[in-house]
Design a protein around this nucleic acid. Structure first.
Length: 283
DNA sequence: ATGGGGGCCTGCCGGC
DNA sequence: TGCCGGCAGGCCCCCA
């Protein structure tokens, strides 16, 4: 159930296993996830050296020597399991296959990467590396929140006149890429902004303050993922799931963490999604 | 153009 | 114990 920090954690975990190594064999166990896999995906992956692993928003891109890039999206329930890694970072033995193991990549090093996704909201696709940005899933994405293009002036301009709740606006991947429900809730808590407040009713000053807060929330989560990744290496090789301490997300009815605040975290539903917030601290 | 809602899937959890 | 409704962190598509 990954947002940007979880995807980045998965990418970092895959780098030592994939980058510079060859996909000796790709096994594709069903014709599709959310969408059909591209024609001959297994053939187009098999034998390919992986030059580089990149991330754009919540997507991982593996650049192959053939000039194609493999796009990986984990959807809501996608997981990457690494086993048989000769570097010793992950479990050495290959575990028994499990339900929902949809794609398996056997590397020339003996490492195996298994993509497991029960809900199948995930996706894989292949496209030319040199036009990857034009891929339909990537073409209309807004700036990376940890990059220079995500500036205070960008966010102020993007929210200008928008009549939608700030919560919905920050979930809009065209405005800023990579945020999901959890980190939007967390960022709005830190910024002291009520999730239902209309974007156009928030002062430019408060919008601008959101930019470093969003960066901090995501960076801290990535750091937390990096530290727990070491634990997973000793455990079962699973990448991307880690416990992180949230201030409001999933804490309905529990005390607000703001020092001196005696209120409790509330939950409201916006566009069918839960929003968690403190009514005293967020206006 | 913008904003809101439905739908895709399976698994899990709490209540009866 | 079993069944059922509600819920889940993403994203696309359609409609007003």
């Amino acid at each position: 159930m990954p947002e940007l920090p979880e995807v980045e954690t998965v990418r970092r975990g895959l780098v030592p296993v994939m980058e510079g190594n060859v996909i000796a064999q790709a096994l594709v166990n069903r014709p599709d996830l959310r969408w059909p896999f591209p024609d001959n995906m297994a053939t187009r992956l098999t034998g390919q050296p992986v030059l580089r692993l990149r991330r754009r928003s919540k997507y991982i891109l593996a650049d192959l020597e053939s000039g194609e890039s493999l796009l990986i999206h984990l959807g809501m329930s996608g997981r990457m399991l690494v086993s048989g890694d000769p570097l010793g970072h992950f479990v050495h033995d290959h575990p028994a296959p499990e339900k929902h193991d949809h794609v398996v990549l056997n590397m020339n090093t003996g490492a195996r990467i298994t993509f497991n996704d029960p809900r199948r909201f995930g996706a894989m696709d292949l496209m030319p590396t040199d036009s990857a940005e034009q891929h339909p899933l990537l073409a209309s994405l807004g700036p990376e929140p940890l990059g220079n293009a995500f500036s205070e002036s960008h966010l102020v301009a993007a929210l200008q006149g928008r009549n939608t709740p700030i919560k919905s606006a920050l979930l809009d991947q065209k405005i800023v890429a990579g945020l999901g429900n959890i980190y939007v809730c967390e960022a709005l808590f830190r910024a002291g902004i009520h999730p239902a407040r209309k974007a156009r009713r928030i002062s430019a000053k408060r919008i601008a303050a959101l930019v470093p807060i969003i960066r901090d929330v995501l960076s801290e989560a990535i750091d937390a993922g990096g530290s727990s990744l070491r634990d997973f290496r000793q455990a079962d090789g699973e990448l991307g799931y880690f416990q992180h301490r949230f201030d409001v997300y999933g804490r309905e009815g529990e005390p607000c963490r703001t020092p001196g605040c005696s209120d409790t975290v509330r939950r409201i539903v916006q566009s069918g999604r839960s929003s968690f917030y403190c009514p005293t601290c967020q206006r």
